[in-house]
Design a protein around this nucleic acid. Structure first.
Lengths: 247, 247
DNA sequence: GATTCCTCGTCAAACAGTTGTAAGCTTCAA
DNA sequence: TTGAAGCTTACAACTGTTTGACGAGGAATC
């Protein structure tokens, strides 16, 4: 199910898997409990994980302890104003998408938003769908990595845009999950990857199946892509550790 | 504001192609230093080179000494007005994309903009993402080879200008939404496109229907354009991912 | 080298999620 | 008021994923 390339696993850079669903953790900063609740529901029903904070100070702390995939920020906040939160966070992490909620009067002032560094905004009262759409758009644009679109090796070539894998010139049909797994492995070639990591990165937070599931997907990939699936060359097992993809 | 995502803004297709390189030099003409700074940051984080000028006179001089790839121009400028700058530069170099920043009151009449020769405009306050999108779109105009106005395949031909689709020489009537969907798919042929992306790009922010709606439109397109709608050749389903249009 | 414990590969049934389709509803404009 | 477009809903049909069982193969210990 959902996945997102959690861009922020602890202390390591992970290649996001593009083309996956845009789920992930969203930090909602809003002081009105009613709105907070509504926003939580809105995003959760769409498969996002939601963290809420009611004031600017805790928002920044939360951001620092575990950066979310995107942020929805009310400009009217107690203590530290939303504007300051926005500026501060954008200074720390320019690529983090921030969508600002504001009263119409807040943004009457020329280009305030631009100066804040916010990516987008909706004015209250806003349509839930519009907010959703904007958050999605914001996420999508940052998620899209300008990575190689086509990778070839051996007699195999992969086109990530088309989501197409060829072997000896013939198209090999991979399922969505197989493809995501393959893509992650390819983009992390030569590195040993544990089942847990695969589950985290390819499957994501939402559902977390057993490690046997990973085995099965590796099995399928071997069957479909290895010359001799019983003695795999590319999809190597690292006993007691996980798997390693070698070109 | 016009809907960015609709393929019909300003008489031309906004085709958000992912992976498009966003490089080039942008000349920003803006007198407010704060806004100037914010714009610089906005574009620079996206990989553009930015040159700023604070008044019309220097803008024109800068343009003449080294023409940029695109221009962002505030209408309210000291000395020479933005309008005059726009006219003058468009006279010198009609193909240079110019996106105008204006207060809502300035452009009460769209005709004005046409007279100026501006390619697009955003009114303050604007969403940074929107400005970015419009500049990108404007750049694509000139950067890209002009897109085919007529596309043919199989026994189908589409004339995007006329908004006319023919099958076996006979006109097939598509509704507006069907046509937009079709157009987006055709212009992103071979790429797997998720329902979310379609909703964002074809439907846009203002209304954001359920993903089932997308299915229905695909259904209609298949019925109208596929030889055998029950085993579609062109409008392919990519299970768990979305759709892919193949010629 | 034999024994034991653990990990991994494999399979097919059960389950869950996704998509196709039709029918009804809402909206908007004529 | 009516009709067309397009959105929503419901559900069946389908496809892919997960699980659990079992045996084979490694690793560690003696």
């Amino acid at each position: 199910m959902g996945n997102l390339a959690t861009p922020f696993s602890i202390g390591r850079t992970v290649n996001p898997v593009p083309g996956t669903k845009t789920t992930g953790r969203i930090l909602v900063v809003e002081d009105d409990p009613a709105v907070q609740k509504a926003l939580r529901r809105l995003f959760e029903t769409e498969g996002y994980t939601v963290e809420t904070q009611s004031d600017g100070q805790s928002a920044i702390e939360s951001f620092q302890s575990s950066p979310p995939a995107a942020m929805v920020l009310d400009l009217r906040l107690p203590k530290v104003s939303g504007s300051d939160v926005c500026k501060e966070i954008k200074a720390l992490s320019p690529s983090l998408p921030i969508v600002v909620l504001s009263a119409a009067s807040d943004v009457s002032d020329k280009v305030l938003l631009l100066e804040l560094g916010a990516d987008d905004y909706v004015t209250k009262p806003f349509s839930p769908r519009e907010l959703l759409a904007r958050v999605r758009a914001a996420l999508r644009h940052t998620t899209r990595a300008p990575e190689a679109q086509v990778v070839s090796f051996d007699d195999i070539s992969v086109d990530f845009k088309k989501m197409e894998v060829k072997r000896e010139g013939k198209i090999v049909v991979l399922t969505a999950q197989e493809f995501k797994t393959f893509q992650f492995l390819v983009q992390n070639a030569d590195r040993v990857i544990s089942r847990d990591e695969l589950l985290n990165e390819v499957w994501g937070y939402q559902n977390y199946p057993s490690t046997r599931t990973v085995d099965n997907h590796i099995l399928k990939l071997r069957q479909k892509l290895e010359k001799d699936p019983s003695s795999p060359v590319h999809f190597r097992t690292v006993h007691g550790m996980g798997y390693k993809f070698v070109r």
